[in-house]
Simulated scan of single mutants.
Amino acid sequence: MTQKPMTKTQLVAALAEKTGTDKKSANATLEALAEIVSTEVAAGGAVTLPGLGKFACRARPERMVRNPATGEQMKKPADRVAKVTIAKALKDVINA
């Protein structure tokens, strides 16, 4: 069941085939979508891609972490991380 993930080239080719456009247009669309989502999430907003999921930014508080090599505990400052919540439609497709 484990297979290699789809590469960007394969994704662009599949997108071009599904939409009936050329690969250059499909690549520009994919890059524009990635830029829009990145900009919005970095600004603290959220973006929902219908049928796929919701991309959002979440703040993590300061916390204690352990270095696995030495076992030393240290304080990690607060930071922000991207969070993806999978849409129900995608869950249903995967579990069907």
Rank of each mutant, 00 (worst) to 15 (best):
L11M: 14
N95A: 12
V47L: 03
A56E: 15
K54R: 15
A59T: 14
D79F: 05
E72M: 08
T19I: 11
K83V: 14
T19Q: 07
F55H: 00
K54N: 08
V65N: 06
V47S: 02
Q10P: 02
A32N: 02
K24V: 01
A46G: 10
L11G: 06
G20T: 14
R58M: 13
T70S: 15
E35P: 01
K75E: 10
T19S: 13
L15V: 11
M64P: 03
K76E: 12
V84K: 10
M64G: 05
L49C: 02
T7C: 11
T39P: 00
T9F: 08
V47H: 02
L30V: 02
K75Q: 13
Q73P: 00
N67E: 11
A42H: 11
A32M: 04
A89K: 07
L90M: 12
E40T: 12
Q10Y: 06
F55I: 02
I94L: 14
L52A: 05
A42K: 14
R80T: 14
L49G: 02
A13F: 05
M1P: 05
A28D: 03
G45E: 10
E17N: 13
E62G: 07
I86D: 10
T29E: 00
P61W: 00
R58P: 08
K8F: 09
F55Q: 00
E17W: 00
A96Q: 06
K75L: 08
T2P: 01
M74W: 07
P5F: 03
V65L: 08
V12Y: 02
V81P: 03
T21R: 06
E17H: 04
P50M: 01
V84F: 15
I86V: 15
A43N: 12
T7I: 04
G51P: 02
L90E: 07
